[in-house]
Design a protein around this nucleic acid. Structure first.
Lengths: 141, 141
DNA sequence: TGTATCTTGATGCAGCCGCATCGATCGACA
DNA sequence: TGTCGATCGATGCGGCTGCATCAAGATACA
């Protein structure tokens, strides 16, 4: 293992920097609009698109820690955005489903979120650059 | 403001995903080696390269929150990696400087950090791709 | 069937973060 | 010089994260 090349270090710094800044602006946009935290959105979308599912599956889809998801769902349940029902086919498990308020929340969050995405990715890059960027980020991930 | 294009959303997801995974592996690598958290490294490097400086300047260089830096420096001071002295030219301010242990720590952290960077950025990409990636990330940040 | 092992989800604890605010000092200006 | 607004850095508080662990149920297998 030799030390990484200079261009690699530059890319690393910018990857972390760009990621952090993108997250910050998205969170700020949501907060400014009085909306729930960013993390909730991914869960709302996943449940909306894939239908009700078990926490374990959500965890795999969203690449999130188990204990983190557990408490995240508890908060969202308290906020009335999801329901948690016992799983009939597995006594340990649960079925998490969106409520109407959950769907409405997903809808309400989108404009603020979209604005942040637009400002971070779409505005500063040409269309073909975005394609290129997505391609290279995929190779990383 | 129209809704972002599909490729934009893809790039967004992958930017956050790649950033999160890169951070996770770097942190894991450091922890596995019994080394301090990732955030400390940037401070050690900044102080090493630019010499002793005031927290306010560190804050601007590293793009970090004020209260966050304040507590970060307190921890590093407790660990003996930096010294904090009153600033002669400004009664409010301080001068933060590296100790020998701080320099040694920076050195000790590098191999683990470099391995994570190599695995995340250098290994999966061709040299010209890394140049391209760094360029586009710069336009974002 | 009975037992050992794995999986699922929750939680106590300590540490870090975000927010608001504070005390101290600085700089500008009448 | 005295006053006022700005800047610097610290900190109390509540919320979130990471870690280790737990209890309950599923699964495998003798």
């Amino acid at each position: 293992m030799t030390t990484p090349a200079a261009i690699t270090l530059l890319a690393w710094d910018r990857l972390l920097g760009a990621g952090a800044r993108a997250l910050r602006t998205a969170r700020a946009e949501l907060k400014r609009a009085g909306l729930p935290p960013l993390e909730w959105y991914d869960i709302l979308v996943a449940l909306d698109r894939r239908g009700a599912m078990r926490p374990r599956d959500l965890q795999r889809v969203l690449d999130i820690e188990q204990y983190n998801l557990s408490r995240l769902l508890a908060r969202m349940q308290r906020a009335g955005l999801v329901t948690v029902a016992p799983c009939l086919s597995d006594g340990r498990g649960q079925i998490v489903a969106l409520t109407e308020a959950g769907v409405a929340c997903r809808t309400a969050m989108w404009p603020a979120y979209a604005a942040a995405i637009h400002g971070s990715i779409e505005a500063p890059l040409e269309p073909d650059e975005r394609i290129h960027l997505a391609g290279m980020l995929q190779k990383i991930a």
